[in-house]
Each structure stands twice: as structure tokens, then as C-alpha cells.
Write a protein that binds this DNA or RNA. Structure first.
Ligand SMILES: NC(=O)c1ccc[n+]([C@@H]2O[C@H](COP(=O)([O-])OP(=O)(O)OC[C@H]3O[C@@H](n4cnc5c(N)ncnc54)[C@H](O)[C@@H]3O)[C@@H](O)[C@H]2O)c1
Ligand SMILES: NC(=O)c1ccc[n+]([C@@H]2O[C@H](COP(=O)([O-])OP(=O)(O)OC[C@H]3O[C@@H](n4cnc5c(N)ncnc54)[C@H](O)[C@@H]3O)[C@@H](O)[C@H]2O)c1
Lengths: 232, 232
DNA sequence: TCCGTTTTGTTCTCCCGTTCACAAACTCCT
DNA sequence: AGGAGTTTGTGAACGGGAGAACAAAACGGA
């Protein structure tokens, strides 16, 4: 029974192939590059062109795409629109995903105001904040609602994805409540490691960590410069 | 001559060991966990405790730390303060890094107002925006200055790290100008692949991509659920 | 129809990172 | 002093991803 699935042909529309995680992370980049090409009026592109636009090796690009199926034509390349649709479908952004944002402070407001989510398959259906003062005025055309409304909202809109933009101390509580309401994917901006059940996916974005990684390399560049001076 | 370096003992203070990239990305997480433990009054911790706090495997944690040196005591564990300092020193955040933010819109303002950067070794020294209207009022106690001031600011403060929070169309231009001014590390929030010289480090944060990765897994969970229903 | 050109899809190899497992080293108790 | 218990640091096995390289396939021109 398990084997049956593995034997399923690549092109089979409903085959649940397991795409490597590294590839999944790059598919959105290809999608973005294809959208740009499409906007420029390009109808066809080679793996080399697309690879340059996406900032990756062309062999890697072709291997990534081969996990989805054979959507190219040898000697010609890929049809931009067709490939774009196939990737969008594979990722799951041909439909709109309802999203709730919890914690409407500096970052939460910026996220709520960001138009890019909408055009990429996500719709912010509710903004939640524990602080009544935050609820005085609407943000991005949406009222800010009490955190207690979470369950109702998740139920009404069938929300599966939640964004946490609260302070770190509140994040685990918020995550627990989200999970209890049936949310199974969380994007976390709070600088804390969340503990959730196995079936819930968590992705974290930590801007301080990004800067620290840059700082590490920056420091090494400087050390190298000094060493060179000394040995010279 | 090349060999000499390889032979250098791990504990040697000035040894330029090459730490794996994956490890570098985790060091800030350990640093954060150690700071939390320290705040809670913990003076000593085992690799197992720290690993749980950081959300990683304890063997991986120990191997990561071993790249920095032997800072633990067998049978006892690690001194929290000591290890915290060693990691901070290795990353390079014992000193303060001056940072400029370009593009003071929704996201740029949120970043400017974020206090967490300061406590983690970064100091926002200037906010730049091309739009004169943006410069009417100060953000986070800093005036918003014209983009043309970049070179002066970079020169005056010795800025090595720049943050791009402009729309995608402007990002490559901004990056080029940054590089021309001597900035060698860039944190990019615009959804575009930046092209920069080899010696410049770029890290990108793309929130749409994060959501799309979650959507992919979410879709698979649902497919699985449907398949189960059908086969049941 | 056939051959040269182009470009995909895939195989193969190498490298990096993860994890296991254990010896070495340290503490504490008797 | 010695042994039991604990925890680190690391060697070795393993798995996954990156990239080179090539065969298969499509196209176009003669
Ligand atoms: N602002 C940034 O640029 C930035 C950068 C990196 C990381 N972060 C992280 O993102 C998170 C938010 O940052 P911020 O600057 O927007 O903070 P903020 O203080 O401006 O906003 C936090 C919001 O969360 C709300 N909140 C607190 N507890 C809550 C709860 N239990 N339920 C619902 N809402 C609750 C608060 O009322 C507030 O409105 C923090 O964890 C921060 O560390 C922010
Ligand atoms: N807001 C978010 O939550 C969010 C989320 C994901 C990605 N992003 C990305 O971050 C970037 C900024 O988003 P935002 O919502 O803050 O946009 P925004 O439009 O609110 O702000 C952009 C700012 O950049 C300034 N700017 C434009 N061209 C410039 C130039 N050449 N030099 C200097 N400044 C310039 C504009 O004047 C404006 O103030 C965008 O690329 C967006 O795609 C934002």
C-alpha cells in the first residue's frame, strides 16, 4: 500500500510526491521570478534564464522542477504562464489562504498594511490584540478585535495559518491558543522557540538573528584584513 | 603556511577557525537561550538543558559549541555567563554595530521602533528615505534623512551593515549605492534577488515565501486527510 | 527525411550537515 | 583513594542536497 504511492508516475496530477524541503523553499522564488518575466511580456524561458532571475544554479533549478513533473520542452524551454500555474498549484497558492495576525504593534501593523500578501495567495481576515487601547482604531481597513475572538474567527473563515507578532513573553500562550483552535501552521516573529504538537508547522523569522549572522561574517572580513596587514 | 593555521589549537584566541554556516546560523539561538537562562538566575546548564531551550538536538549543540572551543566541564555542564560571552564574542556582538535603514515605510518604521536590535548588539544610526514627505516627522527619535546622505553617514559612523526596506523596484539601486559607499553586509526585505559583488554578504527575509512554504505543507496535510477519508 | 543545434530531465559523484555512540574527564560519595 | 554516576567532546556512519555531465528529446533547416 505504501509502495503503490511511490510507484505513481511523476505526471499523475494527484500524486502526492514528496518534494525535498530545500526545493519547497525555492519554489516560491521561482514563482516570483516567473511572475516578473510574465509581467515583462516574456512567454518562454530556458532553465538558464530562469535560474539567473531566481539567483540559483540552472542544474539545481531543473532538478527542482523535475520533482513537479515534466513541464518543459527540450530544445525550447518552459512556457512561463504554464510553469507559473503549475508551481502555484503545487505550492497551493492558486486558492486564497485566510490568515489571522495576532499582536498589532509595530510589526503587526506593518504586516497588516502589506499588500504583497494578497497578491501572493493570502488574505488577512482578522487582526487580534489583547490590549483594548489598540482596538480604538482600524488598521488597514480592518478593526482590531479582542484575542478572545480567535476561535470564532478561525471557525468562521476556516483559518489554518496564524501569524504571531506579540512580545516574546506572550508568544507561547498565543501559539497554544492557536493550536487549540485548530490552526496548524504558524509564522512566528517573536524571538522565542515555540513548543507545539508535531502536526503543527512553525516557521520563525528572527531579524536579530539575521543581523547577527551578518555581523559574524563582517567581523571575519575585518579580522582577515587586519591579519593581512600584519603579515604584509 | 596554510597548514600552520589548521594545526592551531581550537582554544587559541586568535585562531580563525572556519565555523560551518549551519552552525553560525544557530549560535544566535543559543545566545538567546543563554540570555533567558541567565535572566532566570541559572548559573550552570547541561547541553541537554540548553538544547531544549534552543529547540535542537543536544549532540548537535555540543558539536556546534566544539567549533568555538572547549568551554564546558565534563560531568558538570556549561557556565551560562561564560558561554554566553564566548558566543557573543565569536559572533561579534560584544561590540555595537552601526546600522542604516533605507526605506522608512510600514516595515522600515517598525524596524526603527524595534528595541530588540539595540539589546542584541546593533545600533540604528540613520533612517533614509527618498520621499521628502516621509522626512516631515521623526521616527523612533531619529530624523528621516534623504537617501543622498548615505555616503556621509556610512563614512561618519563606519557603517558596515545596511537594511533595505524599500519597494522591490528600488532595492537593486539602493543596494548598488550601499556597495559603492562601502557597505559589505545587506539585510534585504524587498522581494527581489539582489546582485552584488562576491565580497558583499546579502541575507534576505521574504515573508511571503515563509507563508507559501507553510501553505505548501498545509495543502499536503489536507490532501492527506482527504485521501484517508476516501480510502477509509 | 536526416542531421546539427538546443535544452531538458536524470544519473552520478561529492560534500556538508546530522545523529549516534562512546571514550575521556570531572564530581561526589563512601 | 577508589568507584559510581554524570556530562562533555568527537570519531564515524548516514542521509540529503549541490553540481557536473550526459543521454534523450524537440526543433529547424537543408
Ligand atoms: N518591530 C520589529 O521590527 C521587530 C523586529 C524583530 C522582531 N520583532 C518581534 O516581533 C514581536 C512584535 O514586535 P513589535 O515591535 O510589533 O512589538 P509591539 O510591542 O509594538 O507590539 C506587540 C503587540 O502585541 C500585543 N499583545 C501583547 N500580548 C498579547 C497577547 N497575549 N495576545 C494578543 N496580543 C498581545 C500588544 O498589545 C501589542 O500591541 C516581538 O516579539 C518582537 O520581538 C519585532
Ligand atoms: N510591510 C510588510 O509587512 C512587508 C512584508 C513583506 C515584505 N515587505 C517588503 O518590504 C519592502 C517595504 O515594504 P513597506 O510595506 O514598508 O513599503 P512602503 O511602501 O510602506 O515603504 C517603502 C518606503 O521606501 C521609500 N523608498 C522608495 N524608493 C526609495 C529609494 N530609491 N530610496 C529610498 N527610499 C525609497 C518610500 O518612500 C517608502 O517610504 C517592500 O519591498 C515590501 O515588498 C514588506
Amino acid at each position: 500500500m505504501e509502495k503503490t504511492r511511490a510507484v505513481t508516475a511523476r505526471n499523475s496530477p494527484d500524486a502526492a510526491r514528496d518534494i525535498p524541503e530545500a526545493t519547497v523553499a525555492r519554489l516560491p522564488v521561482y514563482l516570483r521570478a516567473l511572475t516578473t518575466l510574465s509581467d515583462q511580456g516574456t512567454t518562454t524561458c530556458s532553465s538558464e534564464e530562469l535560474a539567473v532571475a531566481a539567483g540559483v544554479n540552472s542544474a539545481k533549478l531543473r532538478k527542482d522542477l523535475s520533482y513537479l513533473g515534466s513541464y518543459g520542452t527540450r530544445g525550447v524551454g518552459y512556457d512561463v504562464e504554464y510553469l507559473r500555474y503549475q508551481i502555484a498549484r503545487e505550492i497551493g497558492v492558486t486558492q486564497d489562504w485566510p490568515v489571522v495576525i495576532v499582536g498589532i504593534g509595530n510589526l503587526g501593523q506593518a504586516l497588516a498594511n502589506y499588500s504583497g500578501f494578497r497578491s501572493r495567495g493570502f488574505r488577512v481576515v482578522a487582526l487580534l490584540d489583547a490590549d483594548p487601547a489598540r482596538r480604538a482604531e482600524a488598521v488597514a481597513g480592518l478593526e482590531v478585535r479582542p484575542f478572545a475572538d480567535l476561535e470564532q474567527i478561525v471557525h468562521d473563515h476556516g483559518v489554518a495559518i496564524g501569524v504571531i507578532a506579540t512580545p516574546a513573553v506572550a508568544a507561547q500562550d498565543v501559539a497554544d491558543r492557536m493550536v487549540a483552535c485548530g490552526i496548524t501552521s504558524i509564522l512566528n516573529f517573536a524571538p522565542i522557540v515555540l513548543s507545539v504538537p508535531d502536526l503543527v508547522d512553525v516557521r520563525k523569522v528572527d531579524l536579530s538573528i539575521e543581523l547577527q549572522i551578518l555581523a559574524y561574517h563582517e567581523q571575519r572580513k575585518m579580522q582577515g584584513a587586519v591579519t593581512e596587514e600584519v603579515t604584509a
